[in-house]
């Protein structure tokens, strides 16, 4: 599959702090890439760099075949639409005029084109109401419409569902899935609401303290978060010996906890085997890991 964005050791340093530290990602065309990280992890700074709004301190990037070393990256940025942090809107103008300005900048002068973009995000009937009187959800949707003007191949959305009500979140999710499905636009989306991201993203990147700690596909993530058998015991080293003998695939989580990844339905048998060896089991039971748990564990490991 074609790669639309590649970054290699991309770094952004502000005085004494590295906001983004040697981040290397590869994103395929048509993917919905979810960028996950805590506040201040470096998500927005990374997105600003790949949107062309910030200059990297070091590293390289390649967007749609245009390499940063080739000097033609400006051409690629014209094919990128972005919504970074707050939407950039003229509050004294209405939705149509805001979109029309961007459309003129892109060389499109058709009223119908602008109306089509506004209808796509559900703002087709706002009339002459100025943006200053819009709700947060309406502003976010208008920001998405603006990002889509010019028919970008790559859409970058920085926390687009922040501050939205549940209905608004569903609408934005539907818009993103629709444009990805119908127009094959690659979307990079960052969010704190991992539950929502898990519903739409096809690939994930976990960023912490400016570093990309993990990058994996949806399928791989599902596998990581799959059901497992959790065993809590004071002597995990002895338990490991027994599990090895039983042919169990397991992971040591901490000083007292083990996760068995196969034989999930054979909890009784495993418990009996451990008991036979004199290993006291404080707790044993099925567990599955949510995206939040996976993320917290990743952060814990990264720290």
């Amino acid at each position: 599959m074609e790669t639309i964005l590649t970054t290699n050791l991309l770094t952004k340093q502000f005085k004494h702090q590295k906001a983004v530290d040697s981040v290397s990602v590869q994103i395929e065309r048509g993917a919905i890439y979810g960028l996950i990280g805590r506040n201040g992890a470096g998500k927005t700074t990374f997105l600003r760099m790949i949107a062309g709004l910030a200059r990297p301190t070091s590293g390289e990037m390649e967007i749609m075949g245009f390499h940063s070393n080739g000097g033609k990256l400006s051409t690629a940025f014209e094919r990128v639409g972005s919504l970074i942090e707050q939407p950039g809107l003229y509050h004294h103008l209405d939705a149509f005029e805001n979109c029309k300005l961007k459309a003129i900048c892109c060389g499109v002068y058709s009223r119908d084109y602008v109306n089509q973009k506004l209808s796509l995000v559900g703002l087709g009937d706002v009339g002459k109401k100025t943006v200053g009187h819009f709700s947060l959800g309406m502003k976010q949707r208008l920001g998405i419409a603006l990002a889509m003007i010019g028919e970008p191949d790559l859409l970058i959305l920085d926390e687009p569902i922040n501050g939205l009500d549940p209905q608004g979140i569903i609408e934005v999710r539907d818009i993103i899935q629709k444009i990805n499905r119908e127009q094959n636009i690659t979307v990079i989306i960052s969010s704190h609401i991992l539950e929502e991201l898990s519903k739409i993203a096809t690939h994930y990147g976990f960023i912490h303290n400016g570093r990309l700690v993990r990058q994996l596909s949806r399928e791989a993530l599902m596998e990581q978060c799959a059901d497992r058998l959790e065993i809590v015991t004071d002597t995990p080293d002895k338990a490991c010996t027994v599990l090895d003998r039983l042919g169990c695939e397991y992971k040591v989580v901490d000083r007292q906890t083990l996760h068995v990844l196969n034989h999930i339905d054979n909890g009784a048998m495993i418990n009996a085997a451990l008991g036979a060896e004199g290993i006291a089991v404080a707790a044993i039971g099925k567990k599955n890991e949510s995206l939040e748990d996976y993320f917290i564990e990743l952060i814990h490991q990264a720290n």
């Binding site: 949107a51 062309g52 709004l53 014209e78 970074i84 707050q86 950039g88 603006l146 990002a147």
Partner: peptide, 10 residues
């Protein structure tokens, strides 16, 4: 902030 919408191409 409208500059963010149009100034990506340095």
């Amino acid at each position: 902030g409208f500059c963010k919408n149009v100034m990506g191409s340095r």
